[in-house]
Design a binder for these strands. Structure first.
Lengths: 318, 318
DNA sequence: TCGCTGAGTGAATAATTGCTCATATGGGCG
DNA sequence: CGCCCATATGAGCAATTATTCACTCAGCGA
């Protein structure tokens, strides 16, 4: 990722190949000639340009049915922002489908010339968004994490959405140096009262805009998959009426945070319902329908980026 | 272009096919299945999505050599903005190469929340830009033309860059209802003193940002190609030291407007040198090198979007 | 009504692309 | 010093995509 020279020029070459291919509409043979290399290599450069996210493809047309869903959702749940991306069909990863749309939404805020505090949760969808948006110089903003970055096993790599984003923007960023989930209430107290944690905490609470993922509470819950809760605890939460989770804080069908000892151990900021600033959920997929709807009912979030199938499901069940 | 229903849903379908193809990475067979149509048709939808500009491809990586050229140009000519797009190789239309980059530049201003007056010249490059940028709701801005829109033969179609842009933005726009080039000085006087013309004129003069094309004065001059001046007049202008033209106003090697009777007949606004607001030239191609350099020397423009080959040529001759 | 035009369609085919495999290269490490 | 692993390369081939062609059909003016 950051070896000094050869990698840089390789990226340059890949970017150029991608440019010639997609913008110039040239064939790989022509590109090979242009770059003075073999067709093989040209092909590999182009595919690298895609896989490394050097090339962006966006849709420049609001498909009517998506627009209709957006306005239905906005009306139904009183949202301030709503974007529905066309679905990619069954079997495709919904996170990927919404990533470009989410990235566009993020860029809206990044363009603003005055300094904003932008807060992020975690999750696949946010990561995909982070990979999609175009690097800009947006150092006027501050990027802050809502969640602790200390995982149970010590590895923090899974959750560095914000560092990726901040690097692309050259903006200062504030990770939350606490465990995602503490072992005891005392431990949580201890961490949350540390001076630097307080600073980040306050920054995150007064964020001008917040982007969050939404976790479902079914068997495939990210909390379980990523090892933050055991299946047993999940069962308890389900019994207590859990419908979804945002930043590890679990809420019920009405979007009210549930009163569980488990919630009391979560490090990081709890997104409070009914905010006036935008709180935008980036989430899609059949298993998340219930969780997303509950979050909107409880007004934990007031904005949504999702895909067509999910939007339909949310509306039809409602 | 605007038949009522079938065309709309066709565009929708094309957009969806393009989305599935480029974002979803699906094969045309899969798309055909998804859309319930033949592979043939899927292929045609995808290619339509491209040709109608529904799909946008952008490069998410600053190629090192382009960055270097940008900073060289900025330093050398004291520019406020400069973007250099990677070239598309010999034989390709340079306007197309710079269009996506120019569109990105335009979008920078469109995102601004407070109302701006944005002025446009004409030309192939601007047209290409207009086709590339993403429609947004930016009705806070006003779009104004620098040039007259009455062509010698009465046809105005070639020069409706601004209406296309304004439509995409749903923004109000102000064409300049005067001839591009008047027959006599009296005619020009007459037109320019009409009340509505005055209004547009004043709007254009105080534009917050201006985008212009740059015309060369060689044998392939756009002024001649488009029939605004005869080859004889061109020869006169060349003899008078003409180096280039912006909005039909002809200037010399030092970027000073030349004192020719021909210039006195041009309808529309003359972009004055040394503006503090951004005046951005969108231009590339070997034959324009001299014209672009002169415009920057004379500070008629203080920003530039061009391609690699042109940037190199401008710097090497300087 | 008829014939024309222009856009759209499927089939066939040519061109292009992506993948696999066998092989080379080169730095790190015992 | 030599081995090994990771990575890059070119060839060949299968899959995918673009284009051409012959045909249909709706719209339209004579």
């Amino acid at each position: 990722m950051n070896r000094p020279d050869p990698d840089i020029s390789l990226q340059d070459e890949a970017a150029r190949a991608g440019w010639l291919y997609y913008v110039g509409g040239m064939t790989q043979d022509q590109i090979a000639a242009e770059l003075g290399t073999s067709r093989q290599r040209a092909q590999r450069l182009v595919s690298r340009a895609i896989s490394e996210g050097l090339i962006h493809v966006r849709l420049n047309h609001h498909i009517a049915s998506c627009l209709a869903l957006e306005s239905d959702l906005t009306r139904r749940f009183g949202l301030t922002r709503c974007r529905v991306a066309p679905g990619l069909g069954l079997g495709a990863d919904p996170s990927r489908a919404i990533a470009p749309t989410a990235a566009t939404e993020l860029e809206r805020y990044l363009r603003m010339p005055d300094s904003k505090v932008i807060a992020f949760g975690t999750g696949r969808a946010l990561r995909a968004m982070a990979e999609q948006f175009a690097p800009t110089d947006a150092r006027q903003h501050r990027i802050v994490s809502l969640l602790g970055n200390i995982a149970p096993d010590g590895s923090a790599t899974l959750y560095d959405v914000i560092s990726r984003i901040a690097e692309k923007l050259k903006a200062p960023y504030y990770p939350m140096p606490v465990p995602v989930i503490c072992d005891t209430a005392e431990e949580r107290e201890f961490f949350m009262h540390l001076r630097p944690v307080q600073a980040v905490y306050n920054l995150a609470r007064r964020a001008d805009v917040t982007f969050v993922g939404v976790g479902q509470m079914s068997a495939d819950a990210p909390l379980v998959v990523d090892g933050f809760v055991t299946p047993e605890v999940l069962a308890e939460l389900q019994a207590a009426g859990a419908a979804g989770e945002i930043g590890s804080w679990v809420y019920d069908e009405q979007g009210r945070y549930i009163d569980s000892p488990r919630n009391a151990l979560v490090g990081g900021v709890r997104v409070e319902p009914g905010q006036s600033q935008p709180v935008i959920a980036i989430a899609a997929g059949p298993s998340k329908v219930r969780a997303i709807r509950a979050a909107m009912i409880g007004r934990i979030v007031n904005g949504l980026v999702t895909d067509e199938a999910t939007a339909e499901a949310i509306l039809s069940d409602a």
